[in-house]
């Protein structure tokens, strides 16, 4: 994370996020956006339309968009997991956050920085340690939970014998006791993901202004630039 930090000079650039990571990030963000909006409207549908039932297919389209985005999320995360092994050292940070003493101290320093208690953040080539924890515990585990419960609900529709049912519904539904609680927790999981996104987007933009390195542009170009010469 910060082994080589001290060497980074003002104007120095490091290639951090390879193309697959960046493409995945934005496709994933889009999928999550679609999932949250359509998921919310599955839970609390839009006002009723009058006319014949055969004239409309609103819930059908909303649910289709949800399931399509759900597949994109799931396949994307599998691909990203593959890249954690195939890609550079920073590609691992998302799935395997470090809990070394140095990382923990780094996370503590970030907390102090966000609490306005230290004047400056540290430089980080990859993610800062606190970010890796938030990404792992809220996003990776959260998305994993949403995929497992989501496919369990999906399998109920495709029915016994379908792979979705046999792989997911068959054990997830009995685990929760019945389908209603799976719906309830899948629904609550959406809020967890929303909290992550709120904090994540805010922090990404804030750090763009206030940290000592580039942020949003890094996720677009892949290059991390440092703003000063101090270690």
């Amino acid at each position: 994370m910060s082994e080589s930090v001290d060497l980074k000079q003002h104007g120095d650039s490091v290639y951090v996020y390879e193309a697959p990571v960046r493409i995945w990030h934005w496709i994933n963000a889009l999928a999550i956006l679609v999932l949250c909006i359509t998921g919310y409207f599955i839970g609390s549908p839009l006002p009723t339309l009058s006319g014949e039932a055969s004239d409309h297919y609103v819930m059908g389209y909303i649910r289709f968009a949800h399931f399509a985005a759900g597949y994109i999320l799931a396949v994307g995360i599998l691909g990203r997991l593959y890249w954690a092994f195939a890609g550079n050292e920073h590609a691992k940070e998302l799935f395997f956050p470090s809990f070394s003493k140095k990382a923990l101290l780094g996370a503590w320093h970030e907390i102090l920085w966000y609490s306005f208690l230290v004047k400056e953040p540290k430089k980080c080539v990859g993610h800062n340690p606190l970010a890796t924890y938030a990404m792992f515990f809220m996003f990776v585990l959260g998305a994993f939970f949403m995929i497992v419960t989501g496919f369990a609900l999906y399998g109920e529709g495709t029915g016994m014998g379908s792979w979705q049912f046999e792989l997911f519904s068959a054990w997830v539904i009995p685990l929760f006791g019945q389908s209603q609680d799976v719906h309830t927790f899948h629904h609550l999981g959406m809020w967890l993901i929303i909290f992550f996104v709120m904090a994540h987007v805010y922090v990404a933009i804030r750090e763009d202004f206030m940290s000592r390195q580039s942020m949003v542009s890094t996720m677009i170009s892949g290059w991390r630039m440092f703003k000063d010469n101090r270690p």
Partner: peptide
Amino acid sequence: NADQVGGTAAAIVGGAVAIHAAASAIKI
């Protein structure tokens, strides 16, 4: 229900973000 819990928590997170953003702006 799930939405009341989630909505309330989202309002708190949103409020915290707004206050934090204001404090950050002052710091800048």
